[in-house]
C-alpha cells in the first residue's frame, strides 16, 4: 500500500514538472530582466540571487528595486511587499480545498512555491493535486526563476531586443491558455473572469488602491457575486420543485 502511494507521488512529481515547463519559459525573460535591473540598481550578485531564492515573487521583487532606487527605507519596502503579496492568501485558501490530505510538513514546504503562475496551473488541473505534483511544479518554476535571475545579472540584455519584447507576453498567454478550456465547457467561468477583469480595470484606472489590493478585491467581489447568484438560483429551483 505504502509503495503504491510512493509510486503515485513519483508519477505526479513528473506530471508537475511537465506542467511547470510553460511557467519556466514564461519566467525566463522576467527573471533575466530582474537580474539586469538589480545590477543597475546597485545590488550585488549574491543579493540578487538571494532575493530570488528567498522571496520568489516577481512583482514584489521588481517593486522593491524601484523603491530602493528612489532611496526608500527597508521598512517601507517590506510593508509594500506584504501588500503586493497578500493575494497569495486567497490563492492558498482556494488551493487548500483542492489539495489532497498530505502531511502538514509537506504542505508547509510546498506552500512556499505558490505564485500567481503555479497557483493558476495547479488550480486548473482536473481533480485533486497532491504534494508530489506541487513539488514538481514549484521546483520547475523556482529553478527557472533563480537561475535566470542570476544569468540576467551576469549577461544582461543578451537576448535580441525583438525576442525580449515578444516574450513579455509569455505569462499572459499562459493565463489565457489556462482559462479558455474551462470557458468553453462552463459559462460560469466566463462570468467569473470577465467580472474580475472589469472590477480590476475600474480599480486600476481610478487609482483607488495599489495593484495588489485591486487584484484581491476584484477576485473576491467576482467570486462572491457569482456564488451568491448561483445560490439564489439554486434555492429558487428547489422551491419550484416542491
Amino acid at each position: 500500500m505504502e509503495s503504491t502511494l510512493a509510486v503515485k507521488q513519483a508519477t505526479d512529481f513528473k506530471k508537475g514538472i511537465q506542467s511547470g515547463i510553460s511557467i519556466a519559459i514564461g519566467y525566463m525573460p522576467i527573471a533575466l530582466t530582474f537580474g539586469l535591473i538589480a545590477k543597475t540598481t546597485g545590488l550585488a550578485l549574491g543579493e540578487t540571487v538571494m532575493m530570488s531564492m528567498l522571496v520568489f515573487a516577481g512583482a514584489a521583487q521588481y517593486i522593491s528595486l524601484s523603491l530602493l532606487a528612489q532611496g526608500i527605507g527597508i521598512f517601507e519596502v517590506i510593508l509594500t511587499t506584504f501588500i503586493v503579496n497578500i493575494r497569495h492568501f486567497l490563492m492558498s485558501a482556494s488551493l487548500n480545498e483542492k489539495a489532497e490530505e498530505d502531511t502538514v510538513g509537506a504542505r508547509i514546504a510546498y506552500s512556499f512555491g505558490i505564485t500567481d503562475e503555479t497557483f493558476s496551473v495547479a488550480a486548473t488541473q482536473a481533480g485533486t493535486v497532491n504534494a508530489g505534483y506541487m513539488f514538481g511544479l514549484n521546483l520547475t518554476a523556482y529553478s527557472s526563476w533563480v537561475v535566470f535571475s542570476g544569468l540576467g545579472y551576469l549577461v544582461g540584455a543578451g537576448l535580441p531586443q525583438t525576442l525580449q519584447e515578444s516574450m513579455s507576453v509569455a505569462l499572459y498567454a499562459m493565463f489565457v491558455g489556462l482559462l479558455v478550456p474551462s470557458m468553453k465547457t462552463n459559462v460560469k467561468v466566463i462570468y467569473l473572469a470577465v467580472l474580475a477583469a472589469a472590477f480590476n480595470s475600474i480599480f486600476t484606472m481610478a487609482e483607488w488602491m495599489s495593484t495588489g489590493w485591486a487584484i484581491v478585491l476584484a477576485t473576491l467581489l467576482s467570486a462572491v457575486l457569482v456564488e451568491t447568484v448561483e445560490t439564489f438560483k439554486k434555492s429558487r429551483r428547489t422551491e419550484a420543485d416542491e
Binding site: 490563492m91 473572469a193 477583469a197 477576485t219 457569482v226
Partner: peptide
Amino acid sequence: NVPFATLGALIF
C-alpha cells in the same frame, strides 16, 4: 470560483 476570477484579474 477564485482561480477563474484570479485569471481574469491577472490578465486584464
